[in-house]
Write a protein that binds this DNA or RNA. Structure first.
Lengths: 116, 116
DNA sequence: GGCGATCGTTTCGTTGGCGGATCGAGGCTA
DNA sequence: TAGCCTCGATCCGCCAACGAAACGATCGCC
């Protein structure tokens, strides 16, 4: 359990993790795409386009496009809502889980290398 | 001083800070632009285009473009290197410092709200 | 002084994200 | 069943970022 992460410390962790991500070979996602990923994987289901648009304060087409990109990477999948066929629910994928797990470990490593 | 920030915890902090940033009214910087900002402000001077290109593993034109964008926001300034007129050094600005300070506090807040 | 190397920038064509408007599919109510 | 609403997707023109190549300016060296 972290204890009062300071702003400066947070920035330094952010720098290391982000730099690693930029340097790396992984796909480079926009801030919105990344925010969408994190929202889908870390907040309670279900996730719809309109819900995400409201949650991220972004237009619906922007969400559709982000999903296009992420599903083409197989980081997320569309699943029609059987209860309301107008809606589309987002499903997590193994590949997306792996991507986020790796990213999370990168953050943890950055934090750890700052200790002591 | 943080103590063993877990991957999951790190992701959750990342989600909250990034979502806040996406929702907010600030300029949305690309991952590269943000990485450039953090490198300039958090690592030792001086910073040159080629140095940043190597550090971020990115092409020089990409760095030039990122600097164009950031200097137009007055987050960074170009200063000719008097010792080697071919080089350009990057200077920090007040506005950039404020931007990063706010962002750092957003991270700190996200971390704090996870405690306990 | 001449010449190759190195600096950051510019140009070029391409790709991809953007908001706003609009669409067709589907749901809801009477 | 008719009319209206809401859903996500698509179309449109625009703008920003991309890599590769070429450029002018400047340096280091002989």
């Amino acid at each position: 359990m972290p204890k009062t992460l300071t702003a400066h410390h947070g920035l330094e962790i952010w720098r290391r993790a982000l730099t690693g991500s930029v340097r790396g070979e992984g796909p480079d996602l926009t801030a919105r795409q990344m925010a969408l990923m994190l929202t889908v994987y870390l907040t309670p289901q279900p996730h719809t386009v309109r819900g995400l648009a409201a949650s991220l304060n972004v237009s619906k087409p922007a969400i559709t496009r982000a999903i296009d990109r992420l599903s083409q990477l197989d980081y997320v999948r569309r699943k029609p809502d059987e209860a309301d066929r107008r809606s589309v629910l987002l499903q997590r994928t193994v590949r997306g889980s792996v991507f986020l797990r790796d990213f999370g470990e990168q953050i943890a490593r950055a934090a750890k290398s700052l200790e002591g």
